[in-house]
Every structure is written in structure tokens, then in C-alpha cells.
Simulated assay, not measured.
Amino acid sequence: MSSEPEHTTPPEEYEDLGDVQPLEDEPAADEPEPESEPAETRLDTTVLDEAQRRVESGDRPELNVTPALTNLHESQRAWLRRWRTEGFGSRRELLLALHQLQVWTLGRVPSGWFKQVATSDVLLTVAITDERERRRYRDNPVDLKAAESERDLLASKYIRPRVRRAWRDLRPAAQEVTNEEQRKRFEDPEKQPFPAMRPRLYQRYVDQADATVRLLDGFRSLEHVEVWLEDLDEAGLGLIEQLVPDLDWKIRRNDVIEDMLVHERHESKFVAERELWVAKYLLPTWNAAIRAIARDADEHGEDTREKGLSPRDKQL
């Protein structure tokens, strides 16, 4: 049997292919290729299409129409960075920083957490990074690397959820600013020095910080203690009465407390005792007061200190 194929020549229908055009639809050499319509001329584009195009090209639009929220958010991030990466040089420094956290979370962190951090020997060596200060509380303090990891865990568990809660609570009351000139003025830190753009919150923080520092430093006389007790009512909205109903009486009737506050205020054991008072009494009071103030404090877009605060701002 022959192994040659049956057709050694092309079939008749394949013979004359010279006039058949190529299968590919290529334009003739002398005809220009049609240009595709640019995306910019589409009739169905929206402002979000343009925003997406800029994001994808690395030119993200920057627009801050709620400066109070931005103010709060940036301050929260700055505090958390310090907590996580730096820690604090002493318990006094930690106490003052925890008070600031109460403002940045609008009083949403449970008050007991502040007391625990500032009184637990283990947690103090987690939060304090100065080696000499850490050994005041433990002979073998937590390793610094482990302490940094623990601070990160504490932030994840106790701080970050309350940061979100504060942001969520503030959001419905945050004013939107769309006027370009007005927005730029509000974004200037020198024009809005108040936390979350709320002068009343700032005013109470200053009153509280002043009362805290005075207690940490001790007093020159019992008369100064009396003035301090009176100032506590305004700074803490009278809420310290819920923690220590007989604070004034306790001070007057206890010689050791008088020594701790006045007569032997420079003794290291009394310095430590006053720090404990801040942790046990002042921080819980400040936290509750800040939470109450944050609920209805007015928003102001620029520094009103030279003009004076409105009567409503002075109510709390």
C-alpha cells in the first residue's frame, strides 16, 4: 500500500488564494489608526471617579471638612506613639500623661484602669522606661523589650477601643467646614489650640492639671490645702465627693496626712503617697468630669481666649 497522501496537490478550492484578504482586521497602511476616546470626555464620570483616579496615581485629594475630628484623631495617634515606643521617665510623668489620655478618649477608658496602671508594681515597670525609676518598684523589672511589647498589648486591649469610641461619640457633633478660607484657618494649630476644638474641655483640663501638680508637689501650709480643696470642686465638677465623701475631714483629723501634704512633703515616702492619691482619687474624678463635659461642650473653630468664653462654656 502506498504511503503517499491521497492529495499530493492542494485541493482546487485552495489553489487561488492570492486575492483573499488576511484574517486580521488591520488598517490599510495609508489609513491612521482611530484614537480611543479619552476617559476625561466620558459623560458618566462622577466626582468619585476623579477621586479614585487621583488615589490610584498617588495624588490623593486632601480635604478636611471636620477639623474637630482630625484634631482629636491626630492627638490620639501622638499619645499612642509615645505610649508604645517611648514610655515614661517616672510615675509622676506617667500620671500626667494618663490624665491627658482621659481627654483624648473623652473619658471613655474605665477609671479603674488608670489606678491599676499607676499602682501595680509590674505595670509601672512596663510603663516606665527609666532604669533607675523602674527599680523603685521591682528589683528585677520587666525587660525593656518585653515591656514595649506589653505596652502594645495594653494599647490594643484597653486604649484603642476607647479611642474609637471617643471618635464615634464626637462624630455626630462635629461641624463640617466646606468654605476653603475658613477650613484653612481651622486647620492652623495656632488658631485652634483646644482639644477637639472644645474650649470648655481645654479649660477643665488646665484646672485639673493645675490641681494635680499642686498635690504632687505638696503644700506650703494648711491654708494652701484649703484653697486646693475648694478648687477641686470646680475642676472635678464636685465628683470627688463620690469617691471620698469626707476628704476635708480626713485631712484635718489625720496628722500623718497633714505631714504627707505639708509638713514633711519632701520625704520620699510622702512623695510616693501623694502620687498614690493622684492615682486613687484625682484620676478617677477627672475621668468622670471629662466624660460629663465632653457630652455637651460647644465646638469653636478658632482661639477664643482673647475674646473670653461664652456663658454656656463657663457652665461646667
Rank of each mutant, 00 (worst) to 15 (best):
T178L: 04
N179Y: 00
N179I: 00
E180F: 01
E180L: 03
E181S: 14
Q182D: 15
R183C: 02
K184L: 14
R185Y: 00
P189K: 04
E190L: 13
Q192D: 00
Q192L: 02
F194A: 11
M197H: 04
P199T: 05
L201S: 00
R204E: 00
R204A: 04
Y205K: 07
V206T: 15
V206M: 14
Q208H: 09
Q208S: 06
A209V: 10
A209M: 12
D210Y: 12
D210E: 12
D210M: 09
A211R: 05
T212H: 07
T212Q: 12
R214K: 07
L216D: 09
G218D: 00
G218W: 01
G218M: 01
F219C: 02
L222R: 13
H224R: 15
V225E: 06
E226D: 15
L229E: 09
A235T: 03
L237W: 10
G238R: 03
E241D: 13
Q242G: 15
Q242R: 14
P245K: 09
L247Q: 09
K250D: 10
I251Q: 08
R252Y: 01
N254K: 00
V256H: 13
D259V: 07
V262A: 02
H263G: 08
E264A: 01
R265F: 11
E267N: 11
R274G: 05
R274C: 05
R274T: 03
E275D: 13
K280M: 10
Y281G: 09
Y281A: 12
P284L: 03
W286A: 09
A288W: 04
A289C: 07
I290R: 02
I293K: 01
D296Y: 03
D296Q: 10
D296P: 00
A297Y: 03
A297L: 05
E299K: 07
E299M: 08
E299S: 06
H300P: 11
E302C: 06
D303Y: 08
T304N: 12
R305E: 13
R305Q: 14
K307G: 04
K307T: 14
K307W: 08
G308N: 11
L309V: 07
